[in-house]
């Protein structure tokens, strides 16, 4: 079944290279509202590059990317998008910054901060230093910062790296809750195909070893899971 509603993310004929190295070639993709999509692939397969292209952090060599029906370069309603980057926790390890200060990096009220922390069960850590928290707890804080804007699309780049299996389970339960109860469209990148394929509704596989230099990843052929209708 193909939805005719404006997709949350639409990628048309996207190609990108780093110098002479072709990373993504003619990618076409539609992600509709309510989807829960995992992008998987080995290191260097272009997962994080695809996210950066979607977010407009880097520009494509060819093709267009639309977010909420608008060219991503022209998007001004960034409050519709929450992003948890892979590097989010790296710079904070030596800095005394509190959880509250991390969330307040977004322009929001104190009430919104409390609501966002409550939604990830971290309100009691509001005044704690971020560096005192575990990797899994820090990841929840960064999700809270992304959620504080009340986004319709939440994008996460390798959110479970360095997180133990038990915490990962809790983490995926949280994502599942956000997708089902708050109807947030989720797009997450991971190198862990095994775990992701059991958690998300749709898998996009970027694997240059399997599909060398021909990564039409969103074509139906490459989708494993039964909820392919979201794409």
């Amino acid at each position: 079944m193909i939805s005719h509603a404006i997709p949350i993310v639409e990628i048309k004929d996207l190609s990108f290279s780093y110098g002479d190295e072709e990373i993504l070639t003619n990618v076409n993709c539609r992600i509709n509202a309510g989807s829960y999509v995992g992008i998987v692939g080995h290191n260097g397969s272009g997962k994080s590059t695809l996210l950066k292209l979607i977010l407009g952090i880097i520009k494509p060599d060819k093709g267009k990317i639309y977010l909420f029906g608008k060219n991503n370069a022209d998007l001004i309603e960034w409050n519709k998008i929450g992003y948890v980057s892979q590097k989010a926790g790296i710079t904070t390890s030596h800095i005394p910054i509190t959880v509250q200060e991390v969330i307040k990096m977004e322009k929001v009220t104190d009430k919104a901060v409390d609501d966002a922390l409550s939604s990830v069960d971290m309100l009691k850590f509001k005044y704690r230093l971020l560096r005192e928290l575990s990797g899994g707890q820090q990841q929840r804080i960064f999700i809270a910062r992304a959620l504080v804007k009340k986004p319709q699309l939440l994008i996460l780049d390798e959110p479970t790296v360095g997180v133990d299996v038990k915490t990962q389970e809790k983490f995926y339960n949280l994502l599942d809750r956000l997708n089902k109860q708050k109807a947030i469209t989720l797009l997450l990148v991971s190198h862990d195909l095994h775990t992701i394929s059991h958690k998300v509704k749709t898998v996009i596989q970027l694997d240059r070893k399997t599909y060398p230099y021909n990564i039409n990843s969103c074509s139906v052929d490459h989708i494993h899971q039964p909820y392919a209708t979201n794409i």
Binding site: N79, Y83, S85, A88, I95, K104, M105, E106, F142, K149
Partner: peptide, 18 residues
């Protein structure tokens, strides 16, 4: 201040905050 703190800690997320 908000822009400086966000950009210093997490440049990529700061971009998605507009």
């Amino acid at each position: 201040y908000r822009e400086f703190i966000y950009t210093s800690f997490d440049e990529e997320s700061a971009r998605t905050s507009g």
